[in-house]
Amino acid sequence: MGDVEPIRTAAASPAAPAHANPAPPAPARVTFDRRELDRILDLYGRMVAAGEWRDYAIDFLKDKAVFSIFRRAMDVPLYRIEKDPKLARKQGAYSVISQTGLILKRGPELPRVLAVLEKPLRTIG
């Protein structure tokens, strides 16, 4: 009769409660905010309407956000629009990179950097 084990309840269990050991937070990712994405998609929409571009992809990585622009879905990107916060104080967080890896424009203001992708206006006459 003396060999009876006590009944264990959830509170007396050796495992710690869930709130005491929270899971480590997921690593922060760099993203485009709504204003930046609106500006990029505005340019993208105009270029699709002009028949220049056909597809895009967005990657949110740990160190940068990348908007890739394609002529066809199976190609390598024609251009990459990158946001790299680590470069914000040096060269500017935004850059446009060509298919060959050449940096076409870099700077702190997205609209100025995107201007390199704008088509010049032609006269009709």
Rank of each mutant, 00 (worst) to 15 (best):
D3S: 15
E5Q: 14
I7V: 09
R8E: 14
R8K: 07
R8C: 09
A11E: 15
A12Q: 13
S13E: 12
S13M: 10
S13P: 06
A15Y: 08
A16F: 07
A18I: 01
A18P: 04
H19V: 01
P24Q: 06
A26K: 11
P27W: 06
A28W: 00
T31H: 14
R34L: 14
R35A: 15
R35I: 13
E36M: 02
D38Y: 12
D38H: 09
I40E: 05
I40Q: 03
L41N: 15
L43C: 04
M47E: 13
V48F: 09
G51F: 06
E52S: 12
W53A: 13
R54M: 08
D55I: 05
A57C: 06
K62A: 13
A65Q: 02
F67G: 00
F70Q: 07
R71Q: 02
R72V: 11
M74N: 12
P77S: 08
L78Q: 09
I81W: 02
I81P: 01
E82G: 05
D84V: 07
P85T: 10
L87W: 00
K90G: 00
Q91H: 11
G92S: 06
S95Y: 02
I97S: 01
S98D: 13
R106K: 11
R106N: 00
R106Q: 15
E109G: 07
E109P: 02
L114P: 02
V116A: 07
E118M: 10
P120C: 05
L121H: 10
R122P: 01
R122C: 01
